[in-house]
Design a protein around this nucleic acid. Structure first.
Lengths: 334, 334
DNA sequence: TTGTAAGCGTTATCAC
DNA sequence: GTGATAACGCTTACAA
């Protein structure tokens, strides 16, 4: 038995198996050892219910098999989906995840960095909005959806391409006057590329496009005003809208319906993210879906890459268009 | 500076401050020490950017300030809301959270227990569906929504009371023939109390009530059949339905509308959970809302309670009714 | 191949 | 109040 109520140690296992301490360590780490010894150790470990003490191991090896995830929230759909996938990807690679939630507070984000240092994680993944976050250059760090510099790898969905795709789909479905509507963090970044791609595609086709790029703090009122201004004889002069997120598309749809306009008959709407009701039920709207799992896995792979010298500065992952009821789908896909 | 690239240790701080190692330790732990020494140590620590090594500390003290959360998923709305609140509650108390996601797999749940032992957490919170999970009796363990035994505290919303409340609200709103519909884990448990409370309330008022209690694996078809069977001359013989989750209410509403019935004009619907679209926007339906934050905080408080001798076996937290468009609300609240 | 022993960075127990 | 010193449980040279 273990010494006294507390968990058994390698010493206990060694005594039980009648081998030396080092031998037990080797067995636990898969280092070759005489078959006979291996069996003895395994039996003893099983009998005592022995588990390696990760804290002792971490202290010795300076590797903790733990990664931090800095994230604004665990309860918003996109963030929770990402946290879920990152957690799974890390688990599959023998790592644990410690989430640090920042609640969108730049100061909290910086504080996380401090806590992370104390927690001796092997790396960190950041979904942050602090434009001048200072991270320890020693710590492997990968960002999602936020480009810092060439030295910090960033993984994101192909926002620019997604914007183009949205424009393409709206035009295919008969729209002639388009608009891009944006909310989100005031920090200029990946989200804006969605609009850029959208506008570029429209212009290249000679299609009129307007943009209204706001921040979360501006609320919905400016959008309502924008829509009212485009109302002529109770018809909207715009017939296709691309919103920077599904959330915004949802709110815009409500606004439109309040104004007596029908979606998708009068106006077609495409969002971005690919969020689903209850996490896995229906889409909220037609959307450009982010490859959340792929983003998580790519991020984790980069984070855990052995050779930290040639890391990619930026990885863009392909998005897909998903019809969700706010666009008029052609009978035959074209 | 620290020795050589790697992080500074207490030794470095002691040398820098010109004090003994033990003194640094005391300062870092808030143990009284001469004011002059304290300042010297603090300055040295700041200068070197020193951070306590949690692994060394954990090894020594056997306390890790870490708790595990065993949860089926991080991406389903209810679970992610809970994970979010548990994380926040732990953080506020100086703890970190390590999530272990089980994907509803009983075997994975058992595997988590093993990993948790290895990770030397100070306690664990379980949202599990393995009816015979074996947890280390040494490990402080609290369950959410799942009663094991008197020795394992369980925190849940007042499911029975919530069922009664749902019945009360439907009757107040003019319903005369009610039904309770259930999906979820096949393990009988807290969820069933929702229906029990509902039925008890109805019976005590002499109101007719039917129940259809199924599991997730049964799918939606039995519910569709149930509804069709209650159709008489294209009117439903039931005018109020309580669903065991918001998710089910959402699906039932779709079914009803496919059948040409209007919600809430023809049938009123109440769900359970209080989930919101996009995590914080509109409700999906009228609902009995769980006090998610309160559940998380209560759970964490019990988990971290010093005196582990008189723990409550079961804590039920009060729920609230929230109108969400699937009930006919009276002009004046009454 | 196996056993031995020196730390990893802390905390805690003592003499001072 | 302060400062050596011995653990904590493990890994890893290195000696056997």
């Amino acid at each position: 038995m273990a010494k006294n109520g507390s968990a058994p140690t390698m010493k206990d296992v060694a005594r039980e198996a009648g081998v030396a301490l080092g031998t037990v360590s080797k067995v636990m780490n898969g280092i070759p050892v005489g078959e006979d010894y291996r069996r003895r150790v395994q039996r003893a470990a099983e009998k005592l219910g022995y588990q390696v003490n990760n804290y002792a191991r971490g202290l010795k090896t300076n590797r903790t098999c733990t990664a931090a995830l800095i994230i604004p929230s665990l309860s918003h759909p996109f963030f929770s989906a990402l946290a879920h996938e990152v957690c799974q990807a890390l688990t599959a690679r023998g790592y644990r995840m410690i989430p640090f939630v920042t609640d969108f507070d730049p100061q909290a984000e910086q504080e996380c960095i401090r806590m992370i240092r104390q927690n001796k994680v092997d790396g960190a993944i950041g979904l942050t909005y602090n434009p001048n976050l200072e991270v320890d250059p020693e710590l492997p760090f990968v960002t999602i959806d936020r480009y810092f510099s060439a030295t910090v790898p960033c993984v994101a969905s192909d926002n620019f391409g997604g914007g183009q795709l949205a424009a393409e789909k709206l035009l295919e479905r008969g729209c002639r006057r388009l608009a891009f509507l944006r909310t989100g963090s005031p920090v200029p970044g990946e989200v804006d590329k969605r609009g850029d791609g959208f506008e570029v595609y429209c212009r290249s086709r000679g299609v009129e496009v307007e943009s209204l790029r706001l921040n979360d703090e501006d609320g919905m009122e400016p959008f309502a005003r924008f829509l009212r201004e485009h109302l002529e004889e109770s018809r909207l002069t715009i017939d296709g809208i691309f919103c920077s997120t599904d959330r915004l598309a949802y709110e815009i749809q409500k606004l439109l319906e309040q104004m007596g306009l029908r979606v998708p008959e009068d106006v077609q709407l495409i969002g971005y993210d690919g969020m689903r009701k209850f996490g896995d039920a229906d889409l909220y709207c037609s959307t450009i879906a982010q490859p959340v799992r792929k983003i998580a896995e790519t991020t984790v792979d980069i984070l855990l890459k052995e050779d930290r010298n040639q890391l990619p500065a930026m990885v863009c992952l392909p998005v897909t268009y998903l019809p969700g009821g706010t666009t008029r789908e052609p009978p035959e896909k074209g």
